[in-house]
Amino acid sequence: MSSELPTWKEIPIAGTILEPGNSVKYKTGDWRTFRPVIDQEKCVRCLFCWAYCPDAAVKIVEKPYRTQSGREYQFSVEIDYDYCKGCGICANECPAKAIQMVEEVK
């Protein structure tokens, strides 16, 4: 394994990391045992889940949505399962009870 890693010459000086935010290469979605599932019908787009998420794993996406009762939203809120650790803060804080924690099955 170690032979595939860069040599001392190839590593930038002092181990300084030159690529900002490259932690995205590490998918923390594996940590999850329960996954949050957003019910777009119930979601009121309050953004609490987006604001509270410690992992920036709740995304505001430009997907207009029209509920069955006719309410129109310019955007939707989605979970980024690559990074969501399944902590459940979003579901716990959702004032509309629009997020369910569903057990992961592998």
Binding site: S23, V24, Y26, Y52, P54, D55, A56, D82, G86, C87
Partner: peptide, 29 residues
Amino acid sequence: SLRDLPKEEYLASGHRLCAGCAAGTIIRH
């Protein structure tokens, strides 16, 4: 309102704070 907050994230996902660690929330903002 929360909608006034910048959408850009300068603390990238993939960090290894424990699940549910509020430090992630604080530093993101």
